[in-house]
């Protein structure tokens, strides 16, 4: 018993008088000035009760690094079905395919930042929204190697969007490259699960409505040469038979170029443009 008491006292003393640490300074990293634009693909869902946290995190990131980040909300399969109070169903084939393409994630919300490997998860997806900002900042610290110029023409009668893309490598880039084109819509007010409640008037932003390319992207080119411009044209007709959705005023086209190798699918540059300028 004496031993126990002595030991307990030593432990209690250890707890009470443990060494005091030198406090950590919480500071922001240095982000160089450049025209690099980072892509966040967020895996989310209307029935995902943790996902409003993901949306708030994206808002925070877009506000901190205005003009340097573009976001896409992928409503695929897992917890993406409408809530009992929902008006809309945001799931679509391309979103489901894209969600399935991002393997290894364990839950929602998850996000991929430039499809680069996250050092803490070891995957190209990170399921902790608190770490998305640092992922974006790591990407913004990397060299700016490409420009993407976009131009859209929208025909209000036919609802056709014509997209003109110019990809300009700023350095020689060996390897294979893909291009992905997303159509997103913001400002949709609908129900979203949030913890133990459902928010009936949640404003959804950057909802992936469809893609003009395959979910994994179309082939862009191989071994890109510095300043050798690659031009691409795409067209898409916005559906008119879905009440409340596909509002061209609130839609954006997002384009990104990524590496296409078995071990590296990272994004080099992203760009966005409104359907109606």
């Amino acid at each position: 018993m004496t031993h126990t008491l002595k030991f307990s006292l030593i432990m209690a003393a250890g707890l009470l008088f443990s060494c005091k640490e030198i406090p950590i300074t919480i500071s922001d990293p240095f982000i160089p000035e450049s025209d690099r634009v980072v892509l966040i693909e967020e895996l989310t869902g209307a029935s995902c009760s943790n996902c409003p946290k993901g949306s708030a995190t994206i808002d925070n990131i877009l506000s901190r690094h205005e003009g340097k980040v573009v976001a896409i909300g992928v409503h695929g399969k897992f917890l993406s079905y409408p809530t009992p109070k929902s008006k809309y169903d945001f799931r679509n084939q391309k979103a489901k395919e894209l969600e399935a393409w991002f393997t290894g994630w364990q839950g929602k919300p998850s996000a991929s930042v430039n499809r680069s490997v996250d050092p803490s998860s070891g995957l190209i997806v990170q399921d902790n929204p608190d770490l998305w900002l640092s992922g974006v900042e790591r990407e913004l610290q990397k060299p700016h190697v490409m420009n993407i110029l976009l131009d859209t023409k929208y025909n209000t009668d036919t609802r056709q969007v014509d997209l003109e893309i110019a990809v300009i490598p700023l350095t020689d880039l060996p390897g294979n490259y893909n291009i992905s084109i997303y159509l997103t819509e913001s400002g949709i007010v609908d129900a979203q699960a949030d913890g133990t409640v459902i928010i009936e008037n949640f404003t959804f932003k950057h909802v992936l409505m469809d893609m003009m390319t395959k979910h994994s992207g179309d082939v862009l080119a191989t071994d890109l040469e510095k300043n050798k411009v690659i031009k691409k044209n795409y067209s898409y007709t916005l559906p008119s038979n879905v009440p409340g959705l596909w509002n061209a005023q609130n839609m954006e086209v997002i384009v990104m170029v990524s590496r296409s190798s078995p071990t590296d699918v990272s994004v080099l540059q992203a760009a966005s443009v409104h359907v109606i300028k």
Binding site: G14, E21, I26, D130, L131, S134
Partner: peptide
Amino acid sequence: DENMAGVVDALRTYQDVDRFIPNHNTYSG
């Protein structure tokens, strides 16, 4: 240190009201 970097990365995104100075060491008895 690398795990603490993740904690600091998260805390940087927090508003002042939710921030705290993180400790490396925890003792349990």
